[in-house]
Design a protein around this nucleic acid. Structure first.
Length: 573
RNA sequence: CGGGGCAUAGCGCAGCCUGGUAGCGCAUCUGCUUUGGGAGCAGAGGGUCGUAGGUUCGAAUCCUGCUGCCCCGACCA
């Protein structure tokens, strides 16, 4: 490609509303442009990268034996009503009507459509397992699109759905997809981790997210420092502290704490270590409980894990915190003064809390706390459960090592759906005995557009993007200085351009007239082209060209006669 | 959904407080010079000041509604 014939839409200044680095650099390098909130144009350079990601995904999916299909972006309401999700999905599902006033939605995902297809086309267990995938535009009407294409409303996703006559077969395909995803992210060249994830309300046995590690990530991932263990913080078990609970040393005393409405204030005003405090959270109780609310207790510096709490039988799902008014009318004290002593409602304490001695907590009297509380002596120890988020330094639940926590960008998610959709849509096959059985399903997604952004989050410097070679829009930038004026430069540049292109390299020849050397080089660096060759009068006179890799600190001089050899040694096709 | 902010040329911004016919840098176009790190000079084009209404002799500027966009929050007592 000749730069003079190619839209190089680079910007010197960073658009003011771009927050994260990938968004800034995709705008500055002319990869994308915003059309409206959460909607983007892909410009030629960006699209080349996007297509390369797609190609890698497609090749690896094909290699795994999956079959590519293409489903419509617009889906009839009937299928969603059949699965029950027309009601459940909420405002993220963009609903539209056609000219006959029939209802449709813009697909955020395709379980319904694929299940409908498969129930019509597959009748026998002999046709299973089957795995169908597509690479297609999705729409989710996000509450708050942000970070450019990282969380946009319209995005491209590779979604795959597998069908099975039994769970063993599902597990096999699931494992195969796990491996396939590792192959895909390895080939792209990302620093990523498969992590244990929640499978949400869907159920099923197993779920993994694939996270690209980057400080701008929106998820917290817990890792063991000495094993492969990695889990979304939502899922990481906080194991009970080792050893016995220390014996009481303090008397329980009632303390006036009129100005301590938060744990932070309590600690500051009364000289208590935060590890000696507990916080008491009131949440809606489930039908299982007699009371309307149930209290959950975690250590002052710990956070409640909503997902873990929701899974407790006594807690209503979805988790709902009590209103301040409701607490006051029930206890007579506000949220800042709650604690386990003389608590009139049921209570569940975190494992760590159960091991604490001589701790401070609200007295359930407005403006008062008890200090020196001890379980059993002062108040009976209630039911104990794991209800907090793990923190840095916790022992790993796998048994070896301690946990550290990093930020991740979720680029892939695989999970076992089981029979949820197949049952709702009555998707069955005949088994060996001629009996209809509901199919088991798995589903496997990769956020293709998000992969592009996350690659930048991991690979950039102060000059711009540094694409992994596998997905760079071009692999070699031939920068021809004074192309329009110098005949020798023009001849040499055209010659190399032809040779390298016909040898199969993706080359962009910067032949733009009247663009200064500095501007050409700055643009090629901003656009993240991995290899750069400069052709100039000065070099040709000396019989050399200058080569610089995008990550190299130093340029090197290459003899003109050596260039083709040098490139074939240095550049991956 | 709650809170905050912004909306003036393709991009980044000033002007608004204190009302008087819109400006700067980058980008674009023309010409000349320049060409190894985002060139210089000279000239040119480009704006219903988001939108609707109000106040006023006069509104980018003051007031009100609407729309769009951005940020923060949405368990953490």
């Amino acid at each position: 490609m000749r730069a003079s014939q190619f839209l190089i839409a680079t910007l010197k200044e960073t658009p003011s509303d771009a927050e994260v680095i990938s968004h800034q650099l995709m705008l500055r390098s002319g990869m994308v442009r915003k059309v409206a909130s959460g909607l983007y144009n892909w410009l030629p350079a960006g699209l080349r990268t996007l297509r390369k990601v797609e190609r890698i995904v497609r090749e690896e999916m094909d290699r795994s034996g999956a079959q590519e299909v293409l489903m419509p972006a617009i889906q009839p309401a009937e299928l969603w009503q059949e699965s029950g999700r027309w009601e459940k999905y909420g405002p993220e599902l963009l609903r539209v009507r056609d000219r006959h006033n029939r209802e449709f939605c813009v697909g955020p995902t395709h379980e319904e459509v694929i299940t409908d297809l498969v129930r019509n086309e597959i009748q026998s267990y002999k046709q299973l397992p089957a795995n169908f995938y597509q690479i297609q535009t999705k729409f989710r009407d996000e509450v708050r699109p942000r970070f450019g294409i990282m969380r946009s409303r319209e995005f491209i996703m590779k979604d795959a759905y597998s069908f099975h006559s039994n769970m063993d077969s599902l597990q096999q395909t699931y494992d195969l997809m796990h491996k396939t995803y590792c192959n895909i992210f390895d080939r792209i060249g990302l620093d990523y981790r498969p992590v244990l994830a929640d499978n949400g309300s869907i159920g099923g046995n197993s779920s993994h997210e694939f996270h690209v590690l980057a400080s701008s990530g929106e998820d917290d991932i817990a890792f063991s420092d000495s094993s492969d263990f990695a889990a979304n913080i939502e899922m990481a078990e906080a194991i009970a502290p080792a050893g016995e609970r220390a014996a009481p040393t303090a008397e329980m005393t009632l303390v006036d704490t009129p100005d301590a409405k938060t744990i932070a204030q309590l600690v500051e005003q009364h000289g208590l270590a935060i590890e000696q405090t507990i916080k008491t959270l009131f949440v809606k109780a489930s039908e299982e409980c007699e009371a309307e609310f149930i209290a959950l207790l975690v250590r002052g510096d710990h956070d409640l894990n909503e997902l873990k709490a929701e899974k407790l039988a006594q807690v209503a799902a979805p988790l709902e915190m009590a209103e301040e008014e409701a607490i006051k009318s029930l206890i007579g004290a506000g949220p800042g003064s709650l604690g386990p002593v003389n608590l009139p409602i049921p209570c569940i304490v975190d494992r760590t809390v159960a091991q604490m001695s001589d701790f401070g907590a609200g007295a359930n009297i407005e403006g008062k706390h008890y200090f020196g509380i001890n379980w059993d002596r002062d108040v009976a120890l209630p039911e104990v459960a794991d209800i907090r988020n793990v923190v840095e330094g916790d022992p790993s639940p796998c048994g070896t090592g301690t946990l550290s926590i990093k930020r991740g960008i979720e680029v892939g998610h695989i999970f076992q759906l089981g029979q949820q959709y197949a049952k709702a849509l009555n998707a069955t096959v005949l088994d060996e005995n001629g009996k209809a059985v509901v199919m088991e399903m798995g589903c496997y997604g990769i956020g293709v557009t998000r992969v592009v952004a996350s690659a930048i989050e991991q690979n950039y410097d102060d000059r711009g993007i540094i694409w992994p070679e596998s997905i760079a829009p071009f692999s070699i930038a031939l920068v021809a200085l004074k192309y329009e004026k110098s005949e020798v430069v023009r001849e040499q540049a055209d010659k190399f351009y032809e040779e390298l292109t016909s040898a199969g390299y993706e080359v962009i020849l910067d032949d733009r007239p009247k663009v200064s050397p500095g501007a050409k080089m700055a643009d090629m660096e901003l656009m993240g082209i991995p290899h750069r060759v400069v052709i100039s009068d000065r070099g040709i006179e000396a019989g050399t060209l200058e080569y610089k890799g995008r990550r190299d600190a130093e340029k090197q001089e290459i003899a003109i006669a050596e260039l083709n050899d040098f490139i074939s040694r240095t550049v991956k096709k």
